[in-house]
Design a protein around this nucleic acid. Structure first.
Lengths: 350, 350
DNA sequence: GTTGGCACTCTACAGCCGAAAGTGCTAACG
DNA sequence: CGTTAGCACTTTCGGCTGTAGAGTGCCAAC
């Protein structure tokens, strides 16, 4: 009976036929009412809340059409309507008008962004963003995976050696260790030269290849030393390096009604404790230069299909990463998107 | 009616009058039954589970005495008994006999500890400990605040400078930056010598004092460079540096029955998201050389009074910190304590 | 100190009822 | 064809009741 339109939840800007203005208005009202009230919205309520001159019955007819299109849902016979994920998707793509960030909030954000910039402590933005959006905010930054520009080996007092890796964009990372056989100054220089001679060809991951080459072809007395140095250099640059991640605002969403039912908080707890998977989820957004919205099941991680994420990539100093705001699917997308967009633009821009 | 003994929950080894053997046995049984079953334990159950030859009525009499002493509690008339926090305290202090870590587990732990040692990645122990105890495990390490042994300044290609700080115990930390005015090789050596000449007197915090001295008394052309180097060196060693913290096993305790009631998980979520407070809580244990148990309200943090923590201080390589295992008050203290003790001893010992 | 017996108390669960909410449908209207 | 009014219908939710089950408290006796 219900002519379900083919909905493709994974393509954000699917080319569904546009709704006519009448249905658009009703869908907008239902979505926004439900976002703020957290309850199914009925025809009477919509009429009263938006001072409509049409009768509840008319609204019901429109709602029914939207339900047939898969954009609204009926929890049960005598409840109001609730947007489906497709409904939110349509709202985000076609109905929602961007919101401008209020000047007061903007000032707070600007100040925090300035501080993050100068101190290279981008992760401090998570709490700010969490407070502004009243959702869960995540900020993950990792070293840029750039072409290697230079490698230095330096001896310190006390038998330690520093390996410093410079990337083409100016970022420098160092690691220190104490080799079993401390190389003499000449050997140290030989090792450095050996590496440098082969470096121009070396892309970021090619350091690993160099390790093998060293094992095979480097002068015997310094081979294992070179190997150790390269392994550490590679680890410094590799993506596998744990990114600095900061999460804040978990209370904000834990107190939402969707997380009151027993058991619904569990996935969130797992996510928070296992920050690796959180970072992996957020990584999917790091390529975006403008906020992308993942609604419910559009999120890869199956653990949190009751949530939505608004995220985008950022770059601060020598670091790259992503910011994301997470909350229940019933999320104030207008506000969140505008805030993420604002912060993201400021972090990416000059 | 009930002659409540004065209970002092904050003094772990309070000198309560010892229980006679009969009551001791019953209390032990009740505690251990309740830990494993997560339900109030009745007289019948105790009798059957431990093959006692005494009758349920006798057990009830003993239970009643324990209740009068404040060690057991009645949820309601027709439920079994549950240990109070004082009851767990007495159990931990006087009744519980230490458990030896099974050889299989010990092997796994030894291997993980070895890896953590050599790679200075102590935080990787948290997942292991979480799996072994089936609770939430936290590991927080921060740089040791040690006497400074040496400071090196090294130029890299590309205008960068490395400052390496060595502590007396062998730990080395480095930082890199790109000074506005890149010093020539001679100036770099002069700066290094200037610092070294004043170092023997420098305690850990005295580096900050040296900064002031540099501003006032160092040769003009290298003063600001020295200042920057010392500031960074000081930051490397300072306790204010954010400790590396790793949490794992949140699922273990989130799935416990005490966290099924709606709302009970909320404090845990806040705690996990706000890791600073977790670290602060754990810090209280970093002075202990042997596991200390904090039961329920004995924990400072009011957010988690439904939990217990077993924690102790550790030292790995150049780092110091604490390990802690957290779970509901109804926790298998025997097993947890033995595991924390084992790992802690291995990390502290040679 | 221990035991058996028995009345007592309290919880948990299932079933039932009425109120409230909001729809679907139908027939009528401009 | 979109809109409207009216009304029957469905379903949830809270409160109430009754019953089964668990485990105790107490008493008298050993």
């Amino acid at each position: 009976m219900k002519p379900n339109i083919p909905h493709s939840p994974h393509s954000p800007h699917s080319r569904d036929p546009r709704l006519d203005p009448r249905l658009s208005r009703i869908l907008t009202f239902v979505v926004e009412s439900h976002v703020s009230r957290a309850e199914p919205v009925g025809s009477q309520y919509v009429r009263a809340a938006y001072h409509l001159s049409i009768s509840p019955a008319t609204i019901r007819n429109a709602m029914r059409e939207l339900e047939d299109l898969g954009l609204l849902l009926h929890p049960h016979t005598s409840a109001g309507r609730v947007p489906t994920e497709a409904g939110y998707r349509y709202y985000v793509d076609h109905l929602m008008r961007p919101e401008t960030v209020p000047i007061g909030v903007r000032r707070i954000l600007d100040e925090a962004i300035g501080r993050a910039r100068t101190q290279s402590r981008a992760s401090d933005l998570a709490p700010i963003l969490a407070r502004a959006t009243r959702q869960l905010a995540v900020m993950a930054v990792r070293s840029r995976e750039e072409a290697v520009d230079q490698v230095n080996l330096v001896a310190l007092d006390g038998g330690h050696v520093v390996v410093a890796v410079g990337a083409r964009d100016g970022m420098v990372a160092t690691d220190t260790w104490r080799p079993e056989l401390f190389p003499c100054a000449a050997d140290l220089r030989r090792a450095e030269s050996w590496i440098r001679a082969r470096l121009p060809a070396a892309g970021p991951k090619a350091l690993d290849a160099l390790v093998l080459e060293a094992r095979a072809g480097a002068p015997l007395e310094i081979a294992s030393f070179i190997e150790e140095a390269l392994t550490r250099a590679s680890r410094l640059l590799s993506t596998r390096e744990e990114p600095a991640v900061r999460v804040d605002g978990a209370d904000n969403i834990a107190s939402q009604p969707e997380f009151q039912a027993p058991g619904t908080l569990r996935p969130l707890v797992s996510l928070l404790a296992n920050q690796e998977s959180l970072v992996r989820t957020l990584d999917a957004f790091s390529g975006e230069s403008v906020p992308r919205v993942a609604i419910g099941r559009e999120i890869e991680s199956p653990a949190i299909r009751a949530c939505s994420i608004v995220g985008m990539g950022v770059a601060v100093g020598g670091l790259r990463g992503a910011i994301g705001v997470m909350g229940p699917v019933r999320m104030p997308y207008r506000r969140v998107i505008s805030l993420v967009s604002y912060v993201g633009a400021r972090l990416a821009g000059a």
